[in-house]
Amino acid sequence: MLGSGILKGLGVTAKNFVGSYHDPARMVTQEYPDTPAKLPEAYRNFPFLVTENATDPMGTLRCVACQICEKECPPQCIYIEKSKDKKPDAAGKPQLYPAVFAIDTAVCMSCQLCVEVCPFDAIKMDHVFEVAATNRFEGLLLNREQLAKPNEYFHQIRPAEAAEVDGRLTAERKAAEEKARAAAAAKAAAPAKPAAPAATPAPKPAEGGAAP
């Protein structure tokens, strides 16, 4: 019958109309900004630099200015200048740090390659999307101070990833400490060698026992 398709269509729209009042599947509007936007943990938008603590951000940046992210970035939006001196990092080793670390967020496409290639877990993806600037050039070029955010913030936005990174870094640090202790013990044992050449057999088992 001519018109039966039209009548069926009218029925479907009526069902959706009535459903919009009681069925959440048929009213999908979220009244943002009254209801906040729910972002999944994996959401990525613009990178940030991780600092170990919030009190001394520039002193505790994990970044060692190796410039790998600068090389791998597809639109070349990262600009790094190495420092002239070295500072001790969280494990105590003296490392270079970035004197200048700038990201042009007008160019950055949030592809996350910088995060993937960073060997030091120093740069991670942020969750910010309400970033508006009043100036297209200075406003969107973020420098080191603006990019640095503490590890607590990282835990807040990406709890699972931050926990995994922290676990890995702590394990690495522990392994490094054990190795350092073993090396120190070896060094401590070695000068004892020329001092007491007759007593060499005794320190050896101790040295062997100190090594993990």
């Binding site: 959706n16 999944p40 994996a42 592809c111």
Partner: peptide, 28 residues
């Protein structure tokens, strides 16, 4: 109307992509 019905379903899949890869459309 049909556009919004189709997009209602598409949004659910895009939300899945976002939860997995971090971005709705530029998944990389």
């Amino acid at each position: 109307t049909p556009l919004l019905y189709a997009f209602r379903e598409r949004e659910k899949i895009l939300d899945l992509f976002e939860a997995l890869s971090g971005s709705r459309m530029m998944c990389n």
